[in-house]
Amino acid sequence: MSIQKAFLFLLAVAIALGALVADAPEATAQPATAQPAAGQPVQLHVVPSDGPRGGVTVNPTIDPDRNLHGDRVESHGKGMALLFWVFAAASIGGALFVVTRRNLIAAVMGMVGSFLGIAAVYMMLYAHFLAVVQMLVYAGAIMVLFVFVIMILNRPEDEPVAPTGHVGQVVGGIAILYLLFRLGMLLAHVHVPASAQLAPPPMQLPGGEVADWGTVKAVGSDLFSGGLFPFEAISILLLISVVGAIAIAKPLKDDDGEDADLGEDLATAASGAPHTDGGHA
């Protein structure tokens, strides 16, 4: 159990360190309001992005100096870089923990660490609301569900990897690394529109209000205008999963009109062996 404790401890230290460093560049970035930080490409004059859909539109008339949160620059500066690397390491380390641990509880803990790191990365992408949802729903609810099931099964140890030959493992590993390399090269050189280098401007909501990008207000406004149908339709999906999960996992009773094990062997059925049809009164 010491490994995951150490891991959690490291994660906590990392978060604390990150929080400390985060203060510093923000203070220095504050006076240089409209100025992008050093190392920024020069083609920054195009500010408004080209028209997102729906009722939520970027209003080019909004004063660019208007500053709700004080974060003028996108994730530039050494503090942000350090934060990014810390949380990236947390999420990747947690993910590796999941796929390598024999102990299921350890895997779940790695998963929680990974999800917290991912939530922090969402914050850097200005997805504040999604970051909170990620923590509440994923790291909170779903992982607790996993822990419950692991406790029900009560068999934490498990053989770790599929027993394929060494050749298979090597070939598979090379294939996966190659895939990662190609995907990584593609994504690292993605063409970014110039307007996307700045912090996202505040948005004009239908009611005339202004909200910061990615906040509950802005996301909610989109959710209840363009995203209304999926938002409603997902309730059907949740109903299926609730009803279905109960129907599948409720305890077996002898008097619920179900027969005993009917998974009879086909071979015996074929050879004309007398079959048992339990429970047909």
């Binding site: 299926i240 999963s241 279905g244 129907a247 599948i248 077996l252 179900e258 005993a260 094990d261 998974g263």
Partner: peptide, 14 residues
């Protein structure tokens, strides 16, 4: 998800 649920509904059958 509906079909996963329906597939699992013969609960006593392995």
């Amino acid at each position: 998800i509906g079909v996963y649920v329906m597939t699992a509904m013969r609960r006593r059958s392995r």
